[in-house]
Design a protein around this nucleic acid. Structure first.
Lengths: 201, 201
DNA sequence: GGGCGATGTTAACGCTGGCTAACCCACTTC
DNA sequence: GAAGTGGGTTAGCCAGCGTTAACATCGCCC
Protein backbone atom coordinates (compact mmCIF):
# COMPACT_ATOMS: atom_id res chain seq x y z
CA UNK A 1 0.00 0.00 0.00
CA UNK A 2 1.74 3.18 -1.08
CA UNK A 3 -1.02 5.55 -0.03
CA UNK A 4 -1.64 5.74 3.67
CA UNK A 5 -4.34 7.59 5.48
CA UNK A 6 -3.44 11.16 4.61
CA UNK A 7 -5.16 13.54 7.00
CA UNK A 8 -8.83 12.90 7.24
CA UNK A 9 -10.16 13.59 10.67
CA UNK A 10 -8.40 14.33 13.92
CA UNK A 11 -8.84 12.03 16.86
CA UNK A 12 -8.18 8.34 17.32
CA UNK A 13 -11.17 7.19 15.32
CA UNK A 14 -10.28 9.42 12.37
CA UNK A 15 -8.82 6.81 10.11
CA UNK A 16 -11.54 4.34 11.00
CA UNK A 17 -14.24 6.75 9.84
CA UNK A 18 -12.38 7.42 6.66
CA UNK A 19 -12.15 3.71 5.96
CA UNK A 20 -15.86 3.18 6.46
CA UNK A 21 -16.73 6.04 4.15
CA UNK A 22 -14.30 4.79 1.58
CA UNK A 23 -15.89 1.36 1.65
CA UNK A 24 -19.41 2.75 1.52
CA UNK A 25 -18.57 4.88 -1.47
CA UNK A 26 -17.03 2.01 -3.39
CA UNK A 27 -19.93 -0.25 -2.48
CA UNK A 28 -22.45 2.34 -3.61
CA UNK A 29 -20.75 2.62 -6.95
CA UNK A 30 -20.77 -1.13 -7.41
CA UNK A 31 -24.33 -1.59 -6.21
CA UNK A 32 -25.43 1.12 -8.61
CA UNK A 33 -23.79 -0.61 -11.53
CA UNK A 34 -24.53 -4.26 -10.83
CA UNK A 35 -27.23 -4.32 -8.19
CA UNK A 36 -26.91 -5.42 -4.59
CA UNK A 37 -27.13 -9.12 -5.32
CA UNK A 38 -24.89 -8.79 -8.32
CA UNK A 39 -21.95 -7.61 -6.25
CA UNK A 40 -19.85 -9.89 -4.10
CA UNK A 41 -18.05 -9.17 -0.89
CA UNK A 42 -14.78 -9.75 -2.67
CA UNK A 43 -15.67 -7.18 -5.32
CA UNK A 44 -16.23 -4.51 -2.71
CA UNK A 45 -13.05 -5.43 -0.92
CA UNK A 46 -11.12 -5.39 -4.17
CA UNK A 47 -12.42 -1.91 -4.98
CA UNK A 48 -10.77 -0.49 -1.86
CA UNK A 49 -7.60 -2.50 -2.25
CA UNK A 50 -8.42 -5.00 0.43
CA UNK A 51 -9.49 -8.51 -0.15
CA UNK A 52 -12.67 -10.15 0.97
CA UNK A 53 -13.67 -10.63 4.57
CA UNK A 54 -11.63 -7.69 5.81
CA UNK A 55 -14.84 -5.68 5.46
CA UNK A 56 -16.29 -7.47 8.44
CA UNK A 57 -13.95 -5.43 10.63
CA UNK A 58 -16.05 -2.42 9.64
CA UNK A 59 -19.54 -3.72 8.99
CA UNK A 60 -21.62 -6.44 10.53
CA UNK A 61 -22.77 -7.71 7.16
CA UNK A 62 -23.08 -6.83 3.52
CA UNK A 63 -26.64 -5.81 4.13
CA UNK A 64 -25.48 -3.46 6.89
CA UNK A 65 -23.56 -1.50 4.27
CA UNK A 66 -26.66 -1.13 2.17
CA UNK A 67 -28.69 -0.16 5.20
CA UNK A 68 -26.22 2.48 6.26
CA UNK A 69 -25.97 4.12 2.87
CA UNK A 70 -29.71 4.11 2.32
CA UNK A 71 -30.67 5.47 5.71
CA UNK A 72 -27.96 8.10 5.38
CA UNK A 73 -29.16 9.24 1.98
CA UNK A 74 -32.82 9.40 2.90
CA UNK A 75 -32.18 11.20 6.15
CA UNK A 76 -29.94 13.68 4.40
CA UNK A 77 -32.53 14.32 1.71
CA UNK A 78 -35.26 14.85 4.26
CA UNK A 79 -33.18 17.08 6.49
CA UNK A 80 -31.90 19.21 3.62
CA UNK A 81 -35.34 19.61 2.11
CA UNK A 82 -36.86 20.52 5.44
CA UNK A 83 -34.30 23.14 6.32
CA UNK A 84 -34.43 24.76 2.88
CA UNK A 85 -38.18 25.02 3.06
CA UNK A 86 -38.04 26.50 6.53
CA UNK A 87 -35.50 29.09 5.44
CA UNK A 88 -37.47 30.15 2.38
CA UNK A 89 -39.36 33.44 2.29
CA UNK A 90 -42.68 32.18 0.92
CA UNK A 91 -44.31 29.17 -0.70
CA UNK A 92 -43.05 29.96 -4.17
CA UNK A 93 -39.52 30.42 -2.95
CA UNK A 94 -39.83 27.19 -0.96
CA UNK A 95 -40.82 25.22 -4.04
CA UNK A 96 -37.99 26.76 -5.99
CA UNK A 97 -35.55 25.85 -3.25
CA UNK A 98 -36.89 22.32 -3.02
CA UNK A 99 -36.36 21.77 -6.72
CA UNK A 100 -32.89 23.27 -6.54
CA UNK A 101 -32.00 21.09 -3.58
CA UNK A 102 -33.17 17.85 -5.12
CA UNK A 103 -31.51 18.57 -8.46
CA UNK A 104 -28.23 19.34 -6.76
CA UNK A 105 -28.48 16.25 -4.62
CA UNK A 106 -29.28 13.94 -7.51
CA UNK A 107 -26.46 15.31 -9.64
CA UNK A 108 -24.00 15.01 -6.80
CA UNK A 109 -24.94 11.49 -5.73
CA UNK A 110 -26.08 9.57 -8.78
CA UNK A 111 -24.93 6.23 -7.44
CA UNK A 112 -26.86 6.60 -4.21
CA UNK A 113 -29.97 7.63 -6.08
CA UNK A 114 -29.72 4.57 -8.29
CA UNK A 115 -29.16 2.18 -5.41
CA UNK A 116 -32.02 3.75 -3.53
CA UNK A 117 -34.40 3.23 -6.43
CA UNK A 118 -33.23 -0.24 -7.02
CA UNK A 119 -32.18 -2.18 -3.98
CA UNK A 120 -34.34 -0.79 -1.25
CA UNK A 121 -36.17 -4.04 -0.86
CA UNK A 122 -33.02 -6.03 -0.34
CA UNK A 123 -33.09 -4.61 3.17
CA UNK A 124 -34.40 -6.35 6.24
CA UNK A 125 -37.94 -5.42 7.20
CA UNK A 126 -37.05 -3.00 10.00
CA UNK A 127 -34.37 -1.17 8.03
CA UNK A 128 -36.60 -1.02 5.04
CA UNK A 129 -39.32 0.46 7.17
CA UNK A 130 -37.07 3.18 8.51
CA UNK A 131 -35.92 4.22 5.06
CA UNK A 132 -39.44 4.26 3.69
CA UNK A 133 -40.47 6.40 6.61
CA UNK A 134 -37.91 9.09 5.77
CA UNK A 135 -38.91 8.81 2.17
CA UNK A 136 -42.55 9.27 2.98
CA UNK A 137 -41.77 12.26 5.15
CA UNK A 138 -39.72 13.80 2.37
CA UNK A 139 -42.56 13.47 -0.10
CA UNK A 140 -44.81 15.00 2.51
CA UNK A 141 -42.58 18.07 2.58
CA UNK A 142 -43.12 18.39 -1.14
CA UNK A 143 -46.85 17.87 -0.79
CA UNK A 144 -47.19 20.61 1.81
CA UNK A 145 -45.25 23.09 -0.27
CA UNK A 146 -47.14 22.19 -3.41
CA UNK A 147 -50.49 22.67 -1.76
CA UNK A 148 -49.34 25.96 -0.30
CA UNK A 149 -48.49 27.18 -3.75
CA UNK A 150 -51.64 25.87 -5.38
CA UNK A 151 -54.60 25.60 -3.10
CA UNK A 152 -56.69 23.83 -5.72
CA UNK A 153 -54.53 20.69 -5.50
CA UNK A 154 -56.04 17.90 -3.51
CA UNK A 155 -53.86 15.70 -1.35
CA UNK A 156 -53.66 12.75 -3.70
CA UNK A 157 -52.94 14.73 -6.81
CA UNK A 158 -50.24 16.68 -5.03
CA UNK A 159 -48.62 13.46 -3.90
CA UNK A 160 -48.70 11.95 -7.35
CA UNK A 161 -47.26 15.15 -8.79
CA UNK A 162 -44.48 15.13 -6.22
CA UNK A 163 -43.59 11.57 -7.10
CA UNK A 164 -43.56 12.43 -10.77
CA UNK A 165 -41.23 15.40 -10.37
CA UNK A 166 -38.91 13.48 -8.11
CA UNK A 167 -38.90 10.74 -10.72
CA UNK A 168 -38.04 13.26 -13.38
CA UNK A 169 -35.08 14.57 -11.44
CA UNK A 170 -33.96 11.10 -10.42
CA UNK A 171 -33.81 9.97 -14.02
CA UNK A 172 -30.56 11.91 -14.12
CA UNK A 173 -28.09 9.09 -13.46
CA UNK A 174 -28.77 7.48 -16.80
CA UNK A 175 -28.22 10.47 -19.02
CA UNK A 176 -24.91 12.21 -18.82
CA UNK A 177 -24.86 13.90 -22.17
CA UNK A 178 -24.77 17.37 -20.69
CA UNK A 179 -22.30 18.98 -18.33
CA UNK A 180 -23.46 19.47 -14.79
CA UNK A 181 -24.48 23.11 -14.91
CA UNK A 182 -26.46 22.76 -18.14
CA UNK A 183 -28.09 19.61 -16.83
CA UNK A 184 -28.93 21.28 -13.57
CA UNK A 185 -30.53 24.23 -15.32
CA UNK A 186 -32.49 21.97 -17.66
CA UNK A 187 -33.85 19.79 -14.90
CA UNK A 188 -34.74 22.83 -12.87
CA UNK A 189 -36.75 24.35 -15.70
CA UNK A 190 -38.45 21.09 -16.60
CA UNK A 191 -39.40 20.32 -13.02
CA UNK A 192 -40.97 23.70 -12.50
CA UNK A 193 -42.66 23.46 -15.87
CA UNK A 194 -44.14 20.08 -15.03
CA UNK A 195 -45.38 21.37 -11.71
CA UNK A 196 -47.02 24.48 -13.06
CA UNK A 197 -48.76 22.35 -15.65
CA UNK A 198 -49.72 19.79 -13.04
CA UNK A 199 -52.53 21.76 -11.55
CA UNK A 200 -53.76 23.42 -14.69
CA UNK A 201 -56.75 22.19 -16.60
CA UNK B 1 -56.36 -27.07 -9.95
CA UNK B 2 -59.94 -26.15 -10.58
CA UNK B 3 -59.30 -23.74 -13.43
CA UNK B 4 -58.17 -25.35 -16.62
CA UNK B 5 -57.06 -23.67 -19.77
CA UNK B 6 -60.34 -22.07 -20.75
CA UNK B 7 -60.19 -20.94 -24.35
CA UNK B 8 -57.04 -19.12 -25.15
CA UNK B 9 -55.97 -19.67 -28.68
CA UNK B 10 -56.99 -22.18 -31.28
CA UNK B 11 -54.45 -24.57 -32.69
CA UNK B 12 -52.21 -27.11 -31.08
CA UNK B 13 -49.76 -24.56 -29.69
CA UNK B 14 -52.52 -22.54 -28.08
CA UNK B 15 -52.20 -23.77 -24.56
CA UNK B 16 -48.40 -23.76 -24.75
CA UNK B 17 -48.34 -20.09 -25.65
CA UNK B 18 -50.72 -19.34 -22.88
CA UNK B 19 -48.48 -21.13 -20.42
CA UNK B 20 -45.41 -19.17 -21.44
CA UNK B 21 -47.25 -15.89 -21.17
CA UNK B 22 -48.66 -16.87 -17.85
CA UNK B 23 -45.19 -17.64 -16.53
CA UNK B 24 -43.72 -14.47 -17.95
CA UNK B 25 -46.41 -12.39 -16.36
CA UNK B 26 -45.96 -13.95 -12.96
CA UNK B 27 -42.20 -13.66 -13.23
CA UNK B 28 -42.45 -10.00 -14.20
CA UNK B 29 -44.57 -9.32 -11.16
CA UNK B 30 -42.11 -11.05 -8.89
CA UNK B 31 -39.05 -9.49 -10.46
CA UNK B 32 -40.66 -6.09 -10.09
CA UNK B 33 -41.29 -6.63 -6.40
CA UNK B 34 -38.13 -8.41 -5.31
CA UNK B 35 -35.61 -7.94 -8.09
CA UNK B 36 -34.29 -10.58 -10.46
CA UNK B 37 -31.77 -12.01 -8.04
CA UNK B 38 -34.23 -11.82 -5.18
CA UNK B 39 -36.62 -14.26 -6.84
CA UNK B 40 -36.04 -17.99 -7.01
CA UNK B 41 -37.07 -20.47 -9.61
CA UNK B 42 -39.35 -22.08 -7.07
CA UNK B 43 -41.05 -18.76 -6.38
CA UNK B 44 -41.91 -18.30 -10.03
CA UNK B 45 -43.11 -21.86 -10.32
CA UNK B 46 -45.18 -21.47 -7.18
CA UNK B 47 -46.81 -18.34 -8.57
CA UNK B 48 -48.27 -20.30 -11.49
CA UNK B 49 -49.25 -23.31 -9.41
CA UNK B 50 -46.39 -25.46 -10.54
CA UNK B 51 -43.38 -26.32 -8.53
CA UNK B 52 -39.78 -25.55 -9.39
CA UNK B 53 -37.97 -26.99 -12.35
CA UNK B 54 -41.11 -27.45 -14.41
CA UNK B 55 -40.31 -24.06 -15.89
CA UNK B 56 -37.42 -25.55 -17.80
CA UNK B 57 -39.96 -27.16 -20.10
CA UNK B 58 -40.75 -23.66 -21.31
CA UNK B 59 -37.57 -21.63 -20.89
CA UNK B 60 -33.92 -22.45 -21.28
CA UNK B 61 -32.99 -20.59 -18.11
CA UNK B 62 -34.18 -18.07 -15.60
CA UNK B 63 -32.26 -15.40 -17.44
CA UNK B 64 -34.04 -16.36 -20.66
CA UNK B 65 -37.30 -15.30 -19.03
CA UNK B 66 -35.86 -11.92 -18.18
CA UNK B 67 -34.42 -11.57 -21.66
CA UNK B 68 -37.70 -12.39 -23.30
CA UNK B 69 -39.76 -9.97 -21.26
CA UNK B 70 -37.27 -7.15 -21.67
CA UNK B 71 -36.78 -7.50 -25.38
CA UNK B 72 -40.50 -7.80 -25.81
CA UNK B 73 -41.23 -4.65 -23.87
CA UNK B 74 -38.56 -2.53 -25.53
CA UNK B 75 -39.51 -3.67 -29.00
CA UNK B 76 -43.14 -3.00 -28.29
CA UNK B 77 -42.40 0.46 -26.96
CA UNK B 78 -40.28 1.33 -29.97
CA UNK B 79 -42.74 -0.04 -32.47
CA UNK B 80 -45.71 1.67 -30.88
CA UNK B 81 -43.92 4.99 -30.62
CA UNK B 82 -42.75 4.80 -34.17
CA UNK B 83 -46.10 4.02 -35.64
CA UNK B 84 -47.88 6.72 -33.65
CA UNK B 85 -45.41 9.32 -34.77
CA UNK B 86 -45.75 8.25 -38.38
CA UNK B 87 -49.51 8.46 -38.20
CA UNK B 88 -49.54 11.92 -36.65
CA UNK B 89 -50.47 14.99 -38.66
CA UNK B 90 -47.61 17.26 -37.63
CA UNK B 91 -44.77 17.58 -35.11
CA UNK B 92 -46.97 18.91 -32.33
CA UNK B 93 -49.48 16.15 -32.81
CA UNK B 94 -46.62 13.64 -32.91
CA UNK B 95 -45.28 14.81 -29.55
CA UNK B 96 -48.73 14.71 -28.08
CA UNK B 97 -49.21 11.16 -29.34
CA UNK B 98 -45.83 10.09 -28.06
CA UNK B 99 -46.66 11.30 -24.58
CA UNK B 100 -50.05 9.65 -24.70
CA UNK B 101 -48.52 6.41 -25.86
CA UNK B 102 -45.86 6.25 -23.21
CA UNK B 103 -48.25 7.19 -20.42
CA UNK B 104 -50.69 4.53 -21.50
CA UNK B 105 -47.94 1.97 -21.76
CA UNK B 106 -46.46 2.74 -18.37
CA UNK B 107 -49.84 2.64 -16.66
CA UNK B 108 -50.72 -0.63 -18.33
CA UNK B 109 -47.43 -2.40 -17.64
CA UNK B 110 -46.03 -1.08 -14.37
CA UNK B 111 -44.25 -4.32 -13.54
CA UNK B 112 -42.43 -4.46 -16.85
CA UNK B 113 -41.37 -0.84 -16.51
CA UNK B 114 -39.96 -1.52 -13.08
CA UNK B 115 -38.07 -4.61 -14.15
CA UNK B 116 -36.74 -2.82 -17.14
CA UNK B 117 -35.37 0.02 -15.01
CA UNK B 118 -33.94 -2.32 -12.49
CA UNK B 119 -32.67 -5.58 -13.80
CA UNK B 120 -31.50 -4.79 -17.29
CA UNK B 121 -27.91 -5.45 -16.35
CA UNK B 122 -28.65 -8.91 -15.06
CA UNK B 123 -28.79 -9.91 -18.70
CA UNK B 124 -26.00 -11.50 -20.68
CA UNK B 125 -23.94 -9.09 -22.74
CA UNK B 126 -25.57 -9.84 -26.09
CA UNK B 127 -29.13 -9.70 -24.78
CA UNK B 128 -28.36 -6.57 -22.86
CA UNK B 129 -27.00 -5.03 -26.00
CA UNK B 130 -30.09 -5.80 -27.99
CA UNK B 131 -32.38 -4.28 -25.41
CA UNK B 132 -30.26 -1.17 -25.07
CA UNK B 133 -30.35 -0.81 -28.82
CA UNK B 134 -34.15 -0.71 -28.91
CA UNK B 135 -34.09 1.64 -26.00
CA UNK B 136 -31.66 3.98 -27.72
CA UNK B 137 -33.76 3.91 -30.87
CA UNK B 138 -36.87 4.76 -28.88
CA UNK B 139 -35.20 7.75 -27.28
CA UNK B 140 -34.10 8.77 -30.74
CA UNK B 141 -37.73 8.85 -31.85
CA UNK B 142 -38.39 11.28 -29.04
CA UNK B 143 -35.36 13.34 -29.90
CA UNK B 144 -36.39 13.72 -33.52
CA UNK B 145 -39.90 14.78 -32.62
CA UNK B 146 -38.68 17.17 -29.96
CA UNK B 147 -36.30 18.88 -32.33
CA UNK B 148 -38.99 19.11 -34.96
CA UNK B 149 -41.22 20.92 -32.49
CA UNK B 150 -38.49 23.20 -31.19
CA UNK B 151 -35.72 23.89 -33.61
CA UNK B 152 -33.63 25.70 -31.00
CA UNK B 153 -32.96 22.45 -29.12
CA UNK B 154 -29.55 20.98 -29.71
CA UNK B 155 -29.11 17.24 -29.91
CA UNK B 156 -27.77 16.71 -26.40
CA UNK B 157 -30.31 18.86 -24.66
CA UNK B 158 -33.11 17.16 -26.53
CA UNK B 159 -31.81 13.77 -25.48
CA UNK B 160 -31.50 14.79 -21.86
CA UNK B 161 -35.00 16.24 -21.95
CA UNK B 162 -36.36 13.04 -23.46
CA UNK B 163 -34.77 10.98 -20.72
CA UNK B 164 -36.18 13.28 -18.09
CA UNK B 165 -39.74 13.08 -19.41
CA UNK B 166 -39.56 9.34 -19.79
CA UNK B 167 -38.29 9.20 -16.23
CA UNK B 168 -41.20 11.29 -15.10
CA UNK B 169 -43.72 9.01 -16.72
CA UNK B 170 -41.92 5.89 -15.56
CA UNK B 171 -42.07 7.00 -11.95
CA UNK B 172 -45.67 5.88 -12.12
CA UNK B 173 -45.35 2.38 -10.69
CA UNK B 174 -44.50 3.68 -7.24
CA UNK B 175 -47.41 6.03 -6.79
CA UNK B 176 -50.85 4.59 -7.09
CA UNK B 177 -52.80 7.15 -5.14
CA UNK B 178 -54.88 8.17 -8.11
CA UNK B 179 -57.18 6.18 -10.33
CA UNK B 180 -55.92 5.42 -13.79
CA UNK B 181 -57.71 8.10 -15.76
CA UNK B 182 -56.80 10.89 -13.36
CA UNK B 183 -53.22 9.67 -13.21
CA UNK B 184 -53.05 9.47 -16.96
CA UNK B 185 -54.31 13.01 -17.35
CA UNK B 186 -51.93 14.34 -14.70
CA UNK B 187 -48.90 12.69 -16.21
CA UNK B 188 -49.88 13.89 -19.64
CA UNK B 189 -50.14 17.50 -18.49
CA UNK B 190 -46.94 17.38 -16.49
CA UNK B 191 -44.95 15.79 -19.27
CA UNK B 192 -46.03 18.40 -21.78
CA UNK B 193 -45.43 21.13 -19.23
CA UNK B 194 -41.93 19.90 -18.55
CA UNK B 195 -41.19 19.75 -22.25
CA UNK B 196 -42.47 23.20 -23.07
CA UNK B 197 -40.37 24.57 -20.23
CA UNK B 198 -37.38 22.51 -21.33
CA UNK B 199 -36.45 24.74 -24.21
CA UNK B 200 -37.44 28.04 -22.66
CA UNK B 201 -34.97 30.46 -21.16
C1' DG C 1 9.55 -3.76 25.88
C1' DG C 2 5.70 -6.37 26.30
C1' DG C 3 0.67 -6.51 25.89
C1' DC C 4 -3.29 -5.24 23.18
C1' DG C 5 -6.43 -3.44 20.04
C1' DA C 6 -7.26 -2.36 15.36
C1' DT C 7 -6.96 -4.17 10.90
C1' DG C 8 -5.70 -7.76 7.30
C1' DT C 9 -4.93 -12.48 5.45
C1' DT C 10 -6.19 -17.21 3.99
C1' DA C 11 -8.87 -21.44 4.71
C1' DA C 12 -12.90 -23.43 5.34
C1' DC C 13 -17.87 -24.05 6.26
C1' DG C 14 -22.70 -24.16 5.01
C1' DC C 15 -26.57 -22.65 2.69
C1' DT C 16 -28.92 -21.16 -1.07
C1' DG C 17 -30.34 -21.68 -5.52
C1' DG C 18 -29.99 -22.66 -10.53
C1' DC C 19 -30.05 -26.52 -13.22
C1' DT C 20 -30.02 -31.61 -14.60
C1' DA C 21 -31.46 -36.45 -14.17
C1' DA C 22 -34.62 -39.93 -13.90
C1' DC C 23 -38.99 -41.13 -13.69
C1' DC C 24 -44.23 -40.51 -14.47
C1' DC C 25 -48.35 -39.62 -16.39
C1' DA C 26 -52.17 -38.09 -19.70
C1' DC C 27 -53.58 -37.56 -24.17
C1' DT C 28 -53.42 -37.80 -29.00
C1' DT C 29 -52.72 -40.64 -33.03
C1' DC C 30 -52.20 -44.45 -36.36
C1' DG D 1 -53.57 -50.45 -27.74
C1' DA D 2 -48.74 -49.30 -28.39
C1' DA D 3 -46.00 -45.36 -29.17
C1' DG D 4 -44.69 -40.78 -28.86
C1' DT D 5 -44.86 -36.23 -26.98
C1' DG D 6 -45.73 -32.42 -23.91
C1' DG D 7 -45.62 -31.17 -19.42
C1' DG D 8 -45.02 -32.28 -14.60
C1' DT D 9 -42.64 -34.43 -10.16
C1' DT D 10 -38.83 -35.26 -6.75
C1' DA D 11 -33.99 -35.99 -5.71
C1' DG D 12 -29.65 -34.47 -6.12
C1' DC D 13 -25.46 -32.12 -7.98
C1' DC D 14 -22.56 -28.27 -7.99
C1' DA D 15 -21.03 -23.52 -7.79
C1' DG D 16 -21.10 -19.23 -5.70
C1' DC D 17 -21.11 -16.50 -1.94
C1' DG D 18 -21.80 -14.59 2.72
C1' DT D 19 -19.85 -15.41 6.88
C1' DT D 20 -16.71 -17.23 10.57
C1' DA D 21 -12.26 -19.03 12.44
C1' DA D 22 -7.60 -18.94 13.24
C1' DC D 23 -3.75 -16.68 12.65
C1' DA D 24 -0.38 -12.51 11.48
C1' DT D 25 1.20 -7.62 11.93
C1' DC D 26 1.75 -3.05 13.20
C1' DG D 27 1.48 0.87 16.27
C1' DC D 28 0.32 2.74 20.64
C1' DC D 29 0.74 2.97 25.68
C1' DC D 30 2.09 2.15 30.46
Amino acid sequence: MTEEVAATEPGPAGSALSRREQILQAAAELFARYGFHGVGIDDIGGAVGVSGPALYRHFRSKEAMLAEMLTEISDKLLLGGHSRVDAAAGPDAALEELVRWHVEFALTNPALITVHLRDLDSLSEPDQHRVRESQRAYVEVWVRVLRAVRADLDEHTARAAAHAVIGLINSTPYSTHLDTTAMSALLHRMALGALSAGSGT
